[in-house]
């Protein structure tokens, strides 16, 4: 996606997610999730995508499993029952389908945020007339993970040379706890200082803001965006109609 205009990537990601969610077919969700992982592998971020997606999906899947499968009241094909727990084939299928759709959604959104060129996205948003502050918030949000990781590393080093750390799970847990408060305080301090200097550099500027580097949005990609979004919208409408689903 890095070679495409950020909006093209966004249109592709949004269309894929919309159609997958509307279609509610397990095989489509599975195919989209697999395609997202394959695309990440090509872009060299498969490992990061998998790690981030696992962190987001684990609690979601757990809650879906509990709500739809473990305490199912409607399903007739009972697989297991003990006290309030009632596991049915229908419940399991519902949880599985929902889980796959969630996975497809999370993987596609994360893939886009990992592969999009942040700076290009801000420039594209600027060029599209979106308020500069909004562009900054989007950029800062996308930069949150790497920036927090950098700050955490710096705090970790400063604490490590004062004797924290060590081997074993307990020591790691203790160091992680020690880093939490400084991380939040340092982030707030940094944001406060930077916001003053952003203003002193004339940010957000007025209507006559200019761009030093603009992102080319080729005609072919514009056409592609319109086509993809239109097709996705048509597909969603079709699927939403009684005979579609």
């Amino acid at each position: 996606m890095t070679a495409l205009h950020p909006f093209t990537g966004l249109a592709l990601a949004a269309s894929t997610v919309a159609v997958t969610l509307a279609a509610n077919r397990w095989w489509l969700s599975l195919a989209v999730a697999a395609a997202a992982l394959a695309a990440a592998a090509l872009a060299g971020t498969a490992r990061r995508l998998a790690a981030l997606a696992a962190a987001v999906l684990a609690p979601l899947w757990l809650s879906q499993l509990m709500v739809h499968a473990l305490f199912d009241r409607a399903g007739s094909r009972e697989l297991f029952a003990a006290g309030p727990v009632r596991l049915t084939a229908e419940g399991l299928a519902a949880a599985g389908g929902l889980g796959l759709r969630t996975a497809a959604f999370v993987l596609v959104v994360l893939l886009y945020s990992l592969t999009v060129d942040r700076a290009a996205l801000i420039r594209a948003l600027d060029a599209a007339g979106v308020p500069a502050q909004f562009g900054y918030i989007v950029a800062a949000t996308l930069a949150l993970v790497p920036a927090t990781a950098d700050r955490l590393r710096a705090i970790g080093q400063a604490q490590a040379i004062r004797g924290t750390g060590g081997r074993g799970a307990a020591a790691r847990l203790r160091s992680a706890r020690l880093r939490a408060v400084p991380l939040v305080l340092a982030s707030i301090q940094d944001a406060a200082e930077r916001s003053v200097h952003l203003q002193l550099r004339g940010f957000p500027g007025g209507r006559n803001r200019t761009q030093y580097r603009s992102v080319a949005f080729p005609r072919s990609e514009r056409v592609l965006c319109v086509l993809v979004l239109s097709a996705a919208a048509a597909a969603v409408v079709f699927l939403a109609l009684p005979w579609g689903a």
């Binding site: 700076a119 800062a140 930069a143 500027g205």
Partner: peptide
Amino acid sequence: SYLSMIRSTVAEELAFGLENAGVP
């Protein structure tokens, strides 16, 4: 803290203030 940190190269960082001022 003076650097905006939302630009990917030093050249673009130098341009940040100029963009806000609307320099062509």
